[in-house]
Design a protein around this nucleic acid. Structure first.
Lengths: 245, 245
DNA sequence: CGCCTCATTGAGTTCTGTCAATCCCAGTGG
DNA sequence: CCACTGGGATTGACAGAACTCAATGAGGCG
């Protein structure tokens, strides 16, 4: 499951998909990690309202950012994959307005805010890349607002799969036509604003239409073009172009 | 309509609700404005994909950030009020993945990226406040994901009103019990992921229940506590506490 | 005065949710 | 080796929320 033993490897892939990162910057990031922890599936990494002193980088596994309503309904606001900082924003906000939980077994690196502060003071370009990655999160969240607000149930599920597929490819843990996604249908429901029953029906339809199969924690994409068409998926919001420094 | 002739006045109120801002920082922000432009209601401020060289600060009016689907459905991802930067993130992203449009007549200040870069290099605390304001946008967007994904239609409308009420109070253009909101019901529909017909029905219900009235571009809140209860509105996500420097 | 946009309302439809039963399968213990 | 268990997946029948279509009303503006 852990493709790389280097905890910053996925992060570097993610950053290098968008910008040039020097070896010193890579080392600075590696050195910023104070500790690496493993979380069991279902465990809360950071609860809402907690004061945070570390930011957390996903090294392996899938982590969700979510909020619940009083009747118990849950909404996953973003799924974080290997290479994502789940709460870089905690560095400035100091407390979180949502929860962070491990959906699968997850390995998470802790980065003390103190070291982030040093980076912002001493390494402007690296600091800008970190800022950029919070903006990328925001762009992903904006797309989710569009998805949940206006796409049909089928499009929502398809869009989620398209996005996760591409994001996993970027960090090197997805094939062209298949990738591991060890989530339950309830997790997908919480991420798409649907019920698990309806997610099940939509998955069946996608399967019957020959677009994709989700089984045993693995997604197999049979027809990526048509899947993207159903999802109306346009990866522009993921900003996958190298920017000049 | 324009309460203050100082273009940065709403921004200063917004920042000072969360942090201490020095007079020099205030002046630096004022000096960062290169130009102020007026837009008619309905005008596009920045189209999707456009390369941006300026960030835009709303001085007066209401500006929306939105995306459309191919069938013409629109989703407003965030409403920006006086004091909000609509695309501070454009400073790093360089192009936008969404549109920015004026929903009402709007006055907008342009801030060249060059001057923002100088701020990030010379004024770390001010730079951090600007970064903070992009994180605040992200927090507002996360709350919208929850709203659209899991709240009922009635709760969505009520939540939007509660949020706008509080945000307008912060910048000093709302009373305790009333505020101007010159939007159409279609705008509210695009912001809540509903249809205008259904928004109309929800507004009627809120009115009949004695919670609030929306008429002639003005919201009158009759019972703020109950409205917040219906919306399950918790302002924690707006981070309205002064943070120690 | 007439036009145009927006608001309002009713009737009927469709999509998604709810409830509940059944199935599947991996893990456990006998 | 097999029965048992429990969490998820699947399916059907039904309910209900939100949408669509369409007509009417209200108000602002030239």
């Amino acid at each position: 499951m852990v493709a790389d033993t280097d905890p910053v490897a996925p992060l570097m892939r993610k950053l290098r998909a968008r910008d040039v990162v020097s070896a010193e910057e890579e080392n600075a990031l590696r050195d910023s990690i104070s500790e690496i922890r493993d979380f069991a599936a279902g465990r809360t990494v950071i609860g809402v309202g907690a004061n945070v002193t570390h930011s957390t980088l996903v090294v392996d596994g899938i982590v969700s950012r979510f909020k619940d309503l009083s009747d118990g309904q849950r909404q996953i606001q973003e799924l974080h994959l290997a290479g994502d900082f789940t709460d870089l924003h905690g560095f400035l906000l100091k407390r979180l307005d949502h929860n962070i939980g491990a959906l699968t077994r997850a390995r998470i690196a802790l980065v003390p805010h103190e070291r982030l502060r040093r980076i912002t003071e001493e390494q402007p370009h690296l600091a800008r890349m970190l800022w950029f990655s919070t903006l990328l999160d925001a762009a992903i969240q904006r797309e989710k607002i569009l998805t949940i607000g206006r796409r049909t149930a089928l499009g929502r599920v398809a869009h989620l799969v398209c996005e996760l597929h591409l994001r996993l490819e970027i960090v090197g843990i997805a094939d062209e036509s298949a990738f591991g996604l060890p989530l339950t249908q309830l997790d997908l429901a919480d991420a798409t604003g649907l019920t698990s029953v309806h997610v099940n029906r939509m998955l069946k339809q996608l399967r019957d239409d020959g677009l994709m199969t989700f089984r045993g924690g693995t997604v197999t994409v049979h027809d990526r073009d048509r899947l993207r068409k159903v999802a109306e998926f346009d990866p522009a919001y993921l900003y996958l172009e190298r920017r000049p420094r």
